[in-house]
Amino acid sequence: MDKLKAKLIELFQSGEITLAIGYKQGTRGPRPFFCRSASDVEQMIFSNDYQPNLAVYLTKKEVVKDEKVAIVCTISALRSIAYLARENQIGQSQYKIIHLSPNDELMIFRSPWDIDPYIEEIPSTPSEDDRRVIEMLDAMTSEERWAWWAAQFSKCIKCYACRAACPMCYCTRCIVDNNRPQWIDPWASPLSNMEWQINRVMHLAGRCVGCGACGAACPEGIPVHLLNRKILDNIEENFGITAGLAPREGAVLNTFKPDDKENFIK
């Protein structure tokens, strides 16, 4: 941690950065911290399991505009950055990507493309609790699952915090903002809430890094991130594509293999 702070102070003092995006202590835990001077670096805190995923700010022009930015990344944020680079959303050496590894090693990535070899070694895994809930749901009948999710989705207030928290939900016009046709009713009802979640998860299929920021952001506590996690599992099982690694040969749904599984097609 001291190494991290020292590095940030050095970068501020040398004028290499004007903004460091990291975490500081908030009322209910860590919160995003937009640090703009060397003297404020002291407030910075860090752990690899912090939420939210700070990579979400890198595609927000109002945040990064004209600033020289360093971003303090969790492993999940690193994964997101690797994906964002693949999808042309961030430039080659636009940001200083700083990371403190679980064994407290300070790492600075010159380019998003350098991230891959590092994260390849670290699988994206769900928490024990998440795994338990998924197993519980898998054990249910289809009707019980439907009832469980319907109850969850009836809590949804359509605030789109799940979308706002996701680094990969960077579209300027989301499908829910599209009214020709009106694919998804704009108000909160269990069906339109579920349709929204199906769209969100399908749009993230093969792009989601499994950080869980969406679920963490939900003010109603709906575990929407479990849907993403289930898809990550499916993709790994069916297409052999490991969760959280930006596949070099394209995303999951824009590529194919002629011998992909098709046991469900009769």
Binding site: S142, G206, I235, F256, K261
Partner: peptide, 26 residues
């Protein structure tokens, strides 16, 4: 081929949500 992958993923998701995927025949 692209559609097949899309359905594979969609089916998994629908099933997890409790949507009756027996009602969709591919």
């Amino acid at each position: 081929f692209h559609a097949r992958r899309r359905w594979m993923v969609l089916r998994g998701l629908m099933d997890f949500l409790g949507i009756d995927i027996r009602r969709i025949r591919f």
